[in-house]
Design a protein around this nucleic acid. Structure first.
Lengths: 360, 360
DNA sequence: CTGAAAGCGCTTACAG
DNA sequence: CTGAAAGCGCTTACAG
């Protein structure tokens, strides 16, 4: 089974009538080496005719490069959210990698604290760099890797750290959401965060909410703010509380779609209607946002861009290119559906999208 | 940057006072080699103290094994569906691979017909075997690989082929859905398939529908059957047609959740109510099935099991173990929510789940 | 512009 | 039970 003599560069060299060195030079397009067009074509043809593929292991061993990047997925409480975007993020990374002839090795890590999984990946020289999704500040493996100068890019932020990362501009996204509500006349706007305030994304979304209010001379009222904890249920509980406030808010910014769903249920359960009695804007634009009743107005995340951006930065680090602009915040977009009460004919989208804004 | 002298097996050998051969034997647990417990411990300790990780490239080159499997995702029309389950499938594959110390290389393929992407993966000896998601019968790369005896497992079926695969028991799942409706008194049950009949999964779901009817002495009425084409819209169109039939069906089996959503909209748009005027059961249990209004009763796919099953079979093939039971159909489960009109208190589940049924 | 040769870091018959 | 040595298939200084 699957015996078949391997075709090696020696075979190609012989067939083309050159040395293996030349074969290697041609196939790898080694810069600074002048090879006659004729020789080059001979080599290329021979390789094609023999269906020659260079052995990756031999190549890695000799060149000390693997041409592989690792995508490490750390289990996190935001799993539902992360999962929804994984395919798009994967596409982003995959496209960029493929364009530069890199491959992607996937590794999921249950518990960063108690395993050396990705240190091992690096130690074994399986990869040239890592994209780490769901980074944690107590991750000693990560710090050790950085110390050695190993290329790492985070998907998500580590507050105050100089580690390269790509993330969503959460502050901007939250502002977009809240400004939309303000522009349409709402003055008492509640907030239910996506998570407890110690989570970066949560703090940032709250900051965006606050900034939008202050910029429009509306006072930030602590009484209208509640903290969610990722789940739909937490959104429902928080909403019930907010509806007890007198007077209750006329609009709500729920800092994650899942939390928004909970808030939606709780509101409907009281016989109130959305958007008539409560205008609602979510955050994330998970696939099911357009399917709930009413369809949710929300902030769209640039999932593909997150993957592509992380891939691009990592490849630059791997190639030792200039290491500036290694912290990237990507802009979001407002997707207007029905829950905000401002729906012009069909669904329309406002703002941003692909282009990113550089920070640092 | 990242200089640092590499630790090699030579270092470990010296520190342990043995030869590199012995180090290799110990670290790889080579069977049939008797090594004193004392020597063994010395080696293990030295390796640990030096933070030694064997170089993967060198190991592959010498052993002709990569300890990596490739997961190839072929773009398919069912993308929305596939995407929803990708994280779970990935977990399944990852867990199995990890347990046997294999790694997973991810590769997505835009167009199987016009690229040699995964032939290249194999040619370069990047992987020891492939899991191919979304196989197509016109895929010549696949056939070539099989001919060479290269280990391949499909995620999904290729009708009439002997290629190893793991798939959902679609016939059984459809029967489960339809029997549920029959058991609760429905006699005129419509069907909207998930896709045109040339798709295996579509034909199988239709077969399950038919079998369930016949088994309960209900006649299969072509007039109550329509073909969807993956999209929600197609479900809406088909439903509108079915509602014109006199007398109209009292229940509907929509062979995918997305199609079911479309049918749901179309039904509501006519002022009819679900489940009162139409009992509805879907298929797939995509994440948003529980969030629509009313929550959708549907058939749950064993996503994790698909990944784990494919991984398990592939690893067996790679290790050259007995190649029986290489075609696996996994059972589904009925998830009862509100759309079928038979909701006992809270959501309850019936049947199957993890265990698989072997075929062939 | 091209080639002979060393070397990357393992594994694995083969001796002993 | 353990070791010396060849070899896996490339790349890359170094000569010429």
């Amino acid at each position: 089974m699957h015996a078949q003599r391997r075709v090696t560069s020696k075979d190609v060299a012989e067939r083309a009538g050159v040395s293996r060195t030349t074969v290697s030079f041609v196939l790898n397009d080694v810069p600074g080496v002048r090879i006659s067009e004729e020789t080059r074509q001979k080599v290329l043809r021979a390789a094609r005719e023999l269906h020659y593929y260079p052995n990756a292991a031999a190549r890695s061993l000799a060149s000390r490069k693997t041409h592989r990047i690792g995508l490490v997925l750390c289990q996190s409480p935001e799993r539902i959210f992360v999962d929804a975007f994984l395919p798009e993020v994967l596409r982003g990374i995959g496209d960029v990698a493929q364009a530069q002839e890199f491959r992607v090795l996937l590794q999921s890590v249950e518990n960063v604290a108690q395993s050396d999984t990705y240190t091992q990946l690096v130690g074994e020289k399986q990869i040239d760099g890592i994209i780490l999704s769901g980074p944690r500040s107590d991750d000693s493996q990560l710090l050790a890797l950085r110390r050695e100068g190993f290329p790492v890019v985070l998907l998500g932020q580590l507050e105050g750290s100089e580690v390269p990362f790509v993330d969503v501009d959460s502050v901007g996204g939250a502002r977009l959401a809240v400004e939309h509500l303000i522009e349409h006349g709402h003055k008492r706007i509640g907030l239910i965060t996506n998570a407890p305030p110690q989570y970066t994304a949560s703090a940032q979304r709250e900051r965006g909410y606050r900034e939008a209010l202050e910029e429009h001379n509306l006072t930030y009222d602590r009484g209208l703010v509640r903290y969610g904890d990722f789940s739909e249920e937490s959104g429902g509980r928080a909403m019930s509380e907010l509806l007890e406030v007198v007077p209750p808010p006329t609009a709500l910014f729920a800092a994650s779609d899942l939390v928004a769903f909970g808030a939606m249920e709780a509101t409907k359960a009281r016989g109130l209607r959305i958007p008539r009695d409560l205008a609602l804007v979510g955050f994330d634009d998970i696939p099911l946002a357009r399917y709930v009743d009413p369809p949710l107005t929300t902030i769209r995340l640039p999932a593909y861009g997150l993957g592509a951006g992380a891939g691009r930065i990592l490849l630059r680090l791997i190639k030792g290119e200039e290491a500036r602009d290694t912290q990237l915040l990507l802009e979001t977009g407002l997707v207007i559906r029905d829950s905000c009460g401002f729906h012009e004919g069909t669904t329309l989208e406002r703002a941003a999208g692909g282009r990113g804004r550089e920070v640092d």
